[in-house]
Write a protein that binds this DNA or RNA. Structure first.
Lengths: 155, 155
DNA sequence: CATCTCATCCCATGCTATCCCATTAACACC
DNA sequence: GGTGTTAATGGGATAGCATGGGATGAGATG
């Protein structure tokens, strides 16, 4: 599966449009929906972004009642209620809605931040600060990343 | 499958008509019945909405409701008794019946709230309150969402 | 059988999002 | 170093959507 990698800073024009980074578009090309899905982060002043297929997986997970607590159900419902389908135009641009931009404090530039299976959208300076912070903590605590063994065929 | 995402607030005109959000109509387009199915929520002051195909799945007792007990099957029967088929007009509007509106306290505006496989219809301010509540709880308890592995190829 | 009421259809309108075309900039390739 | 290609950006034109109101027809009611 294609992953969202790297960070891209793009401008917002006066119509409210932003180019989705070409590599992100390529990663989303496999899905049926030509665009992105965006919702406000619960924990940070940023926008969570993903593809429609990711939402469908969330929906599948939400149907397995045993796996979900009430809290988790509420949270999933909140995501669905808050998520917007943002189709891109022929040039690969999307219009980020006002309220979502406000939540992230975005005005004229946005940072698309790859997170692997998903990505985030930040006010560029805000992300710089957060990144520096995480990087500083990593230096002191030396975390390790667990690696899953390869399932069967190539990932 | 097409999901119901995002929240849309629309007006009710003096004839009692409301536009079903275009994206919801698109999600329902796959079904045979050109309209929505609506019934009063058991748990909240809102209206549950879905497509006819979802009703059929409810009838089969298949997929979505594996985990339902006998008691919950009785609930399903109640749903059938309460549910209304609301076809939309050529412009995509439906007329929500009086008693259903009363149950949700709706007078002049309605909020269509996407829930993934289904959606809900709320009095806009009432939904705002509920949403704020859930969002606040999510912040404190920080639940995590289990994600099903991708159905097809490697993750 | 006449009339009334309500629901549906049809047409009109304002706003906004979307499409299409043009321009600039960056990179790669020759 | 020159050229071709792709990505990001800007702006005018168009189409779609939410909404309002009149007209028409079916069923209810007297």
């Amino acid at each position: 599966m294609a992953l969202f990698l790297s960070t891209f800073v793009n401008r917002i024009d006066k119509k409210g449009r932003t180019s989705v980074p070409a590599t992100f578009r390529a990663a989303l090309a496999a899905g049926a929906f030509p665009g992105i899905v965006a919702y406000r982060s619960f924990t940070s002043a940023c926008i969570e972004g993903c593809g429609m297929d990711f939402m469908e997986r969330l929906s599948d997970g939400a149907q397995a009642f045993d796996a979900f607590s009430d809290e988790q159900e509420n949270l999933a419902a909140l995501i669905f209620a808050d998520a917007r389908q943002l189709p891109w135009d022929p040039e690969g641009r999307v219009s980020l809605p006002e309220d979502i931009l406000a939540h992230a404090g975005i005005t004229e530039s946005v940072a698309f931040v790859g997170k692997g299976q998903t990505f985030q959208i930040w006010q560029p300076d805000a992300y710089k600060a957060v990144e520096a912070d995480i990087r500083a903590k990593a230096l002191t605590s030396r975390p390790t990343l667990p690696l899953r063994p390869k399932p069967v065929a190539g990932a």
